[in-house]
Amino acid sequence: MSGDLLGWWGVPLAVLAGAIRVSTPFLFVSLGECITEKSGRINLGLEGTLVMGAMSGYAVSYLSGSPWLGVLAAGCAGAVFGILHALICSLPRVNDIAVGIALMLFGIGLAFFLGKPFIQPQAPNLPSIPFGWWSENAQVRDALRVNALFIIGVILAPFLLWAFRNTRWGLILRTVGDSADAALALGYAINRVRMFATASGGFLAGVGGSFLSLSYPGSWSEGLSSGQGITAVALVIFARWNPMLCFWASLLFGGAAALGPALQSVGITQGYYLFNAAPYMLTLLIMILTCSRDRTLAGAPGELGVTR
């Protein structure tokens, strides 16, 4: 084995690198969903939004030559889906979970429909920042080649946490999410707040989708998302509606997802299906260990359908 290879040490490094690479879509979608759920609504349609974002981001990047314009377009497409969800759900007696699943189907369908001409061409990708310039080791350099969107996500998570706790907007959002009656009594326009929250959630999910098509793996195809959107929605509940915990949960999930291929590349090939399911098992295990029957989930918005 030549000098600049790490062999077995490559596994933790690969898991770290994978955590950074794979986690970004989870991070954006879960942060977006976090905002939406804080307002007391759940949008299961983010899977569709993610795929739509991936497609529109790639298409715009290809047509305009600017990947950042693509990210913006993806965000806007996501926001439109968010507004659609919010509009339909603001009607009386409409179930937000069902509308979410319908929008998921619609979003995926529309993305595939419009995305056909963009499967073949290659669009410019987002830049990465080489934080590993100091290392001689190619592997370390690769692991630390961090995508710009990930960094935005890293900044966004603590900012959202701070904003939820310390700003007027955050307070209104939480009030609407915890008790619609209280919000009404205080004179807040519940539907408008939820519309805003769902639209920003959709925007972030769209951006998360553009990461898939514009950064990693970096091209548009119909099999691009393997349920990242819907898993991220689950991660929000796992993270107890805390943006920082969303960040850690996404990292954990991404790292676990990188474990399977990393182990195989150093020669452990037994039971790869089970390794591939590691992220899901790990998440479930942590949930089992940290939940308790006597305590409702701390931080759960009171108006949220799934937690009642």
């Binding site: 299906y273 949930m287 305590r295 989930l297």
Partner: peptide, 18 residues
Amino acid sequence: RGVNETISSLLLVYIAIA
């Protein structure tokens, strides 16, 4: 255990497929 059934059932889908 008070584990939210929506998430656990979703995670169980992936585990079942594996």
